[in-house]
């Protein structure tokens, strides 16, 4: 049996100065706003206090260290360690989210106002990456449905399109001579998927505001879909009639569908999706676990796709 001894702190484990400074800057802002929230709503003054949710899983959490150091955020580089290294350069405050398209109330929402006016919940979700690994992450956020309701989509709105901020000066991946994707990153959901109670906009994890590498200041989390659907650092949300273009689908349409529902029976053309490795479980001797239909959320979401051929709409 392998006995793991606690190891000395590695340089890679020390949070870079710019990241913790920006986090502090954030916390200062968040403390201010939660104070306002406390005054108006009578909640306790913790930076991102969040109510528990029946949608949370009770599985063992992936460590904060792993959640914040093993990321796919190609705007900051294609290596898993790149986002933690370089995402500190993204300025996430002030931040506005533009909401436009087929809505009764198009608007530019200031993020602080948005957080202040939302009821935050902790949602502990499984996250399954299309590459075959998974995590369990305690997000803090609010249902996307709350926001959708507020902007009053028109009857003609069938889809919701999302766009990541596009700032080459702050995102080294956007300056690369080999553009990995057609920037900016875009994602989309059908309107009924968008208003499903499991779909959230996350503004934090592990009880704090989001680290930049995880998509600060606001990102999408759709737990029954592959992780790449969870678009990060959202700057625009548009309500549209036609299925919107999405970044990975555009890059390789035969590999990444619009739906991208976790499905162990439909393989990626280049690898199997039947099993996954849970990050932090077993180290070098990790044991694969079976991937569950809709990432284990079939009971809640299977109805959204009844009658659809999931091999065709992957």
């Amino acid at each position: 049996m392998l006995i793991r001894r606690p190891s000395a702190i590695l340089p890679s484990e020390i949070t870079p100065r710019e990241i913790y400074l920006s986090r502090r800057q954030w916390m200062a802002g968040a403390a201010g706003l939660s104070l306002t929230a406390a005054l108006t709503k009578g909640l306790e003054a913790a930076p991102l206090s969040a109510a528990k949710s029946p949608f949370s899983t009770d599985e063992k959490l992936t460590s904060r260290e792993d959640v914040t150091s093993y990321n796919n955020y190609y705007e900051f580089g294609v290596d898993k360690a790149d986002p933690a290294k370089y995402a500190g350069s993204l300025k996430t405050s002030p931040w506005t989210v533009t909401i436009d398209g087929l809505v009764g109330k198009p608007q530019e929402i200031d993020l602080e106002d948005l957080i202040r006016s939302s009821t935050l919940e902790e949602r502990i979700y499984r996250m399954r990456c299309v590459e075959g690994w998974s995590m369990v992450i305690p997000w803090v956020g609010f249902p996307l449905a709350d926001l959708v309701k507020r902007v009053e989509p028109l009857g003609s709105a069938k889809y919701v399109a999302f766009e990541t901020v596009n700032r080459p000066s702050e995102m080294p991946g956007l300056r690369s001579v080999f553009p990995v994707l057609d920037w900016p990153y875009r994602e989309g959901l059908r309107l009924d998927e968008a208003v499903h109670p499991l779909t959230i906009l996350a503004v934090g994890l592990y009880g704090e505001t989001l680290p930049n590498q995880n998509g600060a200041p606001i990102r999408l989390v759709v737990p029954w879909k592959y992780g790449f659907k969870g678009i990060k650092s959202i700057t625009r949300i548009s309500f549209v009639e036609k299925q919107p273009e999405t970044a990975w689908n555009k890059q390789a349409p035969n590999e990444y569908g619009f739906y991208a529902n976790v499905n162990p029976n439909v393989d990626h053309p280049r690898w199997s999706q039947a099993t996954e490795r849970r990050i932090g479980e077993g180290g070098l001797f990790v044991k694969r676990r079976p991937t569950l239909m809709f990432n284990g959320y079939a009971e809640q979401v299977a109805g959204l796709y009844s009658g659809m051929d999931l091999r065709k709409f992957y």
Binding site: R4, Y70, R277, L284, V286
Partner: peptide, 15 residues
């Protein structure tokens, strides 16, 4: 490094 858990979050894949 792998045996001492120093290959990051996904050590098997790294190795």
């Amino acid at each position: 490094q792998g045996v001492n858990d120093r290959l990051g979050a996904d050590p098997m894949r790294y190795l």
